[in-house]
Design a protein around this nucleic acid. Structure first.
Lengths: 203, 203, 203, 203
DNA sequence: TATGAATGAGCTTTCATTCAT
DNA sequence: CATGAATGAAAGCTCATTCAT
């Protein structure tokens, strides 16, 4: 019985988080009112406060969801092509730039980032999932280094960090340049990956 | 006389923008109240409204200032070492990561980024200076391509874009990882730059 | 349930309008603050804004109420004495001059009048009820003309207009002359009404 | 020399009052800012405060001016036709309804009226000039009564009051009905004046 | 649990007035 | 006398949160 009740609560929470995420994407955290969220979730104000202690609580939960999604995408993209996991990242992520949610979600991420620096609770959840994302990259990097495909002298954590940085930096630019040349960007990225490939001397 | 008057007005505006920037860095745009800005600028509320039409106006001005600063840093860094302008970027920018303002300012940039997607006026000022920053990079890239140092097949605008992306992505990570290994990050970047260097075949 | 809900809302609206009217009479529209109204209505600021979109909205509603009251008085006064409806108007309205609300309400009407010339929303509601008031007068005037009591050559709408004008003009004077001789004023009015009576030749 | 200075001050005061009156007509007393008045008068804020102690002071002066104008018009209209001074009033005042300033000025009068009930200083100036206007009417009324043209049994002050009331009431209606039938209104007025004329029995 | 009316602190902005120049 | 930058009280309005039903 508590099993059922718990599942019910979880479903409601997810319903609220999803609604909130849509609102946040559209209007930002601060300009989204609790009423906006309630309306979007088809719930009354009181109901929402049964599942979350405060608006900040909803923001934090939304942030974790946002990061969880990114981490998931990274790990599945890296796992999809064991032969060339890093190259596959570029092939998987760049086309996303044309999805309508791309900018919408990017803006939420950057909003979260700036909130994080003020609210430790948000930062906490954020970092946890960012850690997970990085871990999902470090592993294939190490594997490729062992296989002699990547320059073994480079710190695998740093490589993973640069990859994430390039991705987030691309999202950042994309916010301002909807017409950005994603393919050109991808070509430069691929060329750069060659720069961290193992050469004869470094093998 | 109008010369003096105008200079006076400019000085006051700068005083307000600087104060506002500090507040924004500390509390974010929305949580910063106009009164906070006034207090930080040592001015009365009415005085501030003599120089700016609204809080949004101050945000927009702050945003332009933020971008102008970045563009300036990029152009001066690229100009400092004509032999290796791109490599110099890494050498100039990475050490900044340890400055106390690094995270503080990064957070403002990302806040601005997310505001931009909602407020066209902010986006306008932002994009203008982002354009300038990119232009300052495209030029040395082209020069290096002509000199046969960089792979001429790559689109110079895309190269510039990736460089900016890496920088902003690094700032992003730095917000969450104060302990991030900047040197390791730099090493990977340098290795990557080698990936876009001209090789014999492409020369 | 919606029946009850609706009735509840209407009751609250009336509560607010009444409180607002008292404030407006005492201090005028502009000098009455929303907080004044809230205090007078024994409600919090937020509560009031649950029932009205803005202060102007409250003013408009108050204005309609004000006009509605006048129209109602006119129509009931005219209906009370079918033999001499116009004469009855004088008999009914003049004694009101001694009521304490007389000046208080007059001032609201004139304030509304001047607001109307600027705010179309207020003017709209105002005119609608003024129309109704005039209509309530035109009908008895026409009836008296048919009965041969009033000069049939006069435009009944103009007669109604003059009657309203005399009433409002009297209120106007009363604002400045609390000691005005209402009976003398009434005598002159009655004499004037004789001037628009049908004479042998016009019968 | 003080003569000249005094004349200069008077000229400036009039300049300000006129500008203020235009502003008040357009936006109402409360929504007119001191800056509006200064701009309309082509003077700096400080300059205006050299001639008036406060905004209320300007309003009061404007009000006296407004009433002075009406009193002047009444007295000159009544004096113009010694044979039929009252009839002449109708002939002079009704055509004014088509002047563009008619409604504009009416609104100021009603605004003043409602301010008067709150501000004794305004009321004071207002009443003084209203007294003058009434006096200018009482005299010809008395004269006509002596000549046996008007019913001598009526209180001349009340007659004057009704005349002013009709005029102000007409202005009031005109605010809401730009299309009001002024001629019809005039005909009714003339018929009414006949009602207060002396008849054989009352002569 | 669900509801949504009520709360009131706190926000941005305006504006009458002062006063150093 | 003229100027207009500076002041700061106070305005209208919003919104996170509570709580009786």
């Amino acid at each position: 019985m508590p099993q059922v009740r718990e599942a019910y609560r979880e479903a409601r929470r997810k319903q609220i988080i999803d609604a909130a995420y849509r609102c946040f994407a559209e209007k930002g955290f601060q300009k989204t009112t609790v009423r906006d969220i309630c309306k979007a979730a088809n719930l009354s104000v009181g109901a929402v406060y049964n599942y979350f202690r405060s608006k900040d609580d909803i923001i934090a939960a939304s942030g974790e969801e946002d990061q969880r999604r990114i981490a998931e995408m990274i790990s599945s993209a890296a796992a999809a092509d064991p032969e060339d996991p890093l190259g596959n990242l570029v092939r998987v992520f760049l086309p996303l730039a044309n999805e309508p949610e791309f900018v919408r979600d990017a803006v939420v991420t950057f909003d979260l980032c700036s909130q994080s620096s003020r609210d430790p609770e948000i930062a906490e959840g954020f970092r946890k999932t960012l850690d997970a994302a990085l871990d999902h990259l470090v592993e294939p990097v190490k594997r490729q280094q062992k296989r002699g495909v990547l320059n073994a002298k480079l710190d695998p954590y740093s490589v993973a960090a640069v990859l994430v940085a390039v991705y987030q930096g691309f999202r950042y630019l994309r916010v301002f340049y909807p017409e950005i040349d994603a393919d050109g960007f991808g070509s430069v990225c691929e060329a750069m990956v060659r720069g961290i490939s193992a050469t004869k001397g470094e093998r």
